[in-house]
Every structure is written in structure tokens, then in C-alpha cells.
């Protein structure tokens, strides 16, 4: 039998469907009966739903223009030599 503390510790994995089936079954049984754990689950789920609804922040047009300008300058600088060692991760 999982305790409320154990349920809480597993909630995040539960939300991500990252648990073994038998643990999921036990958690669902517990959450179905325990109002506190149910509230923990509901509020966590709602929190994550809210963040999923956050829109991207558009790049302001002047900021975009400055980016393009900076990249153009870089291209002009890069033409004669090829610089590629500035700590950018190699993947």
C-alpha cells in the first residue's frame, strides 16, 4: 500500500506516464479514495495545463531588425576567415 507521501513523490512521474502499470493502478486506487491526494493531483495537473497555454513571446520588430543587422555584420567579418571556436557545443 502506497502512503500519501509516496503518492506525492510519484505524482510527477504519474503525470508523465512514466511509471509501471502496477504502480499506476495502485496510485489511481489511492487517489480515487483520498481527497488530499486527489487535490494534489488536480492542482498539479492544472498547473501544468496553465503553463502549456502560455504563448510564445513574439520578437519585437526593432529587436528582429537588430538581430539581422548583427548577423549581416558577422557574415561580412566571417567572409575572409572561418571562425568556429567560441565554445559552441559540438553535436
Amino acid at each position: 500500500m502506497m502512503t500519501c507521501k509516496e503518492i506525492l513523490e510519484s505524482l510527477s512521474s504519474y503525470v508523465d506516464a512514466d511509471l509501471k502499470k502496477e504502480i499506476v493502478v495502485e496510485m489511481e486506487r489511492h487517489i480515487g479514495k483520498c481527497s488530499e491526494c486527489r487535490a494534489e493531483f488536480d492542482t498539479l495537473t492544472m498547473t501544468l495545463k496553465l503553463y502549456k497555454h502560455v504563448d510564445d513571446t513574439p520578437v519585437p520588430s526593432d529587436c528582429h531588425d537588430r538581430l539581422i543587422k548583427v548577423l549581416k555584420l558577422e557574415k561580412m567579418k566571417a567572409k575572409p576567415t572561418d571562425a568556429s571556436s567560441d565554445g559552441t557545443p559540438e553535436v
Binding site: T57, V59, P60, C63, R66, L67, V70, L71, E74, K75, A78, D82, A83, S84, D86, G87, T88, P89, E90, V91
Partner: peptide
């Protein structure tokens, strides 16, 4: 926003400079 703009520029500058070392893994 100012810090975000700095990061935006820095990110694409690094990408531009490092693109040739990007191996597609």
C-alpha cells in the same frame, strides 16, 4: 527584454559561427 535580446543575438551568432561543426547527431 534587454537580456533576452542579448541572448537572442548571442545564440544566433554562436549558431552561425558553429554551424560547420554541427554534425547532426
Amino acid at each position: 527584454p534587454q537580456d533576452a535580446e542579448d541572448v537572442l543575438q548571442d545564440t544566433f551568432l554562436r549558431a552561425y559561427r558553429g554551424l560547420k561543426s554541427f554534425k547532426g547527431n
